[in-house]
Design a protein around this nucleic acid. Structure first.
Lengths: 209, 209, 209, 209
DNA sequence: AATGAATGAGACTTCATTCAT
DNA sequence: CATGAATGAAGTCTCATTCAT
């Protein structure tokens, strides 16, 4: 679908130097993340964000040249958080069961702060170097991580297959977490347990197939 | 997430009785679905839809009192399509493997017409009787269907567990299909095969656990 | 000086078909010309123009995709007026004295309607296919006209010299008219008489030099 | 045209006493003149000027209470330069030809430093004691100077006529120089030569008419 | 005094919706 | 009924100006 947007260089207009400006930028990003998560892209207006952050609209634009660059800043921060979670959850030699358990647990935790944020950032919010792009740096690293973990549990299949398995796992987890968040069920232990069971079975079977 | 909107029940201003009216309404809904799917919520403007449908903006408002009711009509039609698919894919006595195979196949087919539509309708578009609402009629029937199928394959666990398993399956399928669509991979057979394998394993194991 | 603006295609969003919309467009252009002439570029805001035209801001944007395209429409109309004046003031065989007299008279008349407009359009208002550009179609035709008239009165000098003489005459007339308008002296007969005398002397002398 | 502005007399907030203050004020005025000349009124923002001058926006406002007073300072300096040029170009007994030659040469030189400045200051920039005002001190002195020179070359006509002739000469020179600057032709000798010829003819004829 | 972060009125523009023809 | 011109609230963004540090 889509061929939204293009446009080249939104960045940050100026690096916040003083403590005060750092706080402003932080407040804006945080307020933006909350609004995006709670109210969705349609309600994400720069005035509302500035308001929620407790700063004037002028201050927002002092640091972010336009709405898109603010989105980008929020995205960057969120994706960094996600990647951090993923990087720490797999270690060489970790048994499948423990890996899956830890991964799902941490993933749920990561999405519990701003439950709607991930989906909005991936699906709704426009992006100039489309993170919707299957080849975005984020997606590449994200999936590469899964692929490596998958590969370590199954030695007799092709790389292509590993990549597909990684996709399935990543997207299934995403779907379950996203919809659970939407229903307000992200905290329910059965969701986590069943998700762990499904992924575990799939990955375990793949490992011995 | 979300607590968008309030506003009570906009319906269809007048039921189209004559053939011409029906054609107009149909054209508007179809044009709207296409725009929503191809260009996303942000590009979905009433004037654009009217244009694409080849009717005047005035005519559009003759049949849909406001934008929300147009969305609602599109949603209704799309969800009906989904339910139809689901209703026909499970029959008493159908072996697990065939059921899962058919379900995934038909689900992918249903989302191949307007690949972006489902997600936009669920996640982006506002809704007055929130279909995002876990208790929406659609979601109830949708999940109830899954729950019945699940129940038929496992006799010794509680209803609550059945419901959770149904959720996991439904949401995992949704996640995989949605992300595959986003990546333009919806037609690739490996995606279908691996998804079938994962769901099959999970449901099969649940059936005998 | 300047390297203002670039940007490619502002045009008119839709041709006014009905009488009502033609009146709207006409009112907007006329109000815009008046504001530009009387208050300058800095005061030329789309809201003010819409107000002065007695239409809503939305109506203005129904026909002009942006501020620039409105300026362009005003410019086009004004320059057409100027060219019309010029085309009719010179005929083969017309004696120098009569030509200069007629030219200055008509030029003053043309600038008496919106005294400030010409200068604002040339100097202040941004333009995407810079009319400030010495090679703009307008300037080319404008100066070409002068050059032909000049050439017809002096047969023994080069084209290059003709072009320079044309420039001097055109710009001197422009300077006198513009500054007289600024001072509210455009209607004073001595201004016209002295200007005619200066240009007549110069062109007459050039003719026999 | 114009009746921009009202607002009473903003002046310089404090006279710069120390060397550093003087340098700051000087830097601001110079930076402002360059921006005005090179980029036009629209790009002339106080923050940009402060930046270009290498001082903080706060410092700028330490010396200039508002934007208008900064413009006024730039204008004052520019007009002083012009008057200086004019004062030195006419001396009792100077032959017409030499006077005109020197005047035009010096005028072109004066406008070559900041080619766009003069016009922007006269035409675009707002002014609280309108220098556009035909009765501004500057214009009075400026034209008075021309009138005296004119008078010295023609003894048998009225003051009123002298004043008109002065106007014509001043404004024609202005028009030619301004438009030449706009076209980047200010340095071309033919422009100067032809302008000298036209003014010389006119003033010489007036002297003997 | 100097700095630069913060402010907010106001400019441009879009788009859901109404209503005269 | 259909049309499409008109409306104006609301959103994005700029920039003159203030004020805490």
């Amino acid at each position: 679908m889509s061929t939204r947007i293009a446009k080249l260089p939104p960045v940050m207009r100026k690096e916040p130097r003083q403590a005060r400006s750092k706080a402003t930028v932080e407040a804006v990003i945080e307020a933006g993340a909350r609004i995006l998560s709670d109210q969705g892209w349609a309600e994400f207006t720069t005035n509302k964000v500035a308001d929620a952050a407790g700063v004037s609209i002028g201050s927002l634009y002092q640091y972010f040249p336009d709405k898109l660059s603010l989105i980008e800043a929020i995205r960057r921060r969120h994706l960094d958080d996600c990647l951090a979670v993923m990087r720490k959850s797999w270690k060489e030699g970790l048994p499948v069961a423990l890996f899956v358990e830890g991964l799902v647990r941490d993933m749920i935790a990561a999405h519990s702060i701003h439950p709607g944020l991930h989906r909005v950032l991936i699906d709704e919010a426009p992006s100039f170097h489309a993170s919707k792009d299957p080849h975005s740096a984020f997606e590449t690293e994200y999936l590469g991580y899964y692929a490596r973990a998958v590969a370590s549990y199954r030695t007799h299949e092709t790389d292509a297959a590993n990549h597909t398995v990684a996709l399935i796992i990543s997207d299934a987890i995403d779907g379950v977490i996203h919809n659970a968040a939407r229903r307000g069920m992200l905290a329910e232990p059965q969701v986590k347990d069943q998700l762990v069971r499904m992924i575990g079975l799939y990955l375990g079977e793949a490992a011995t197939a």
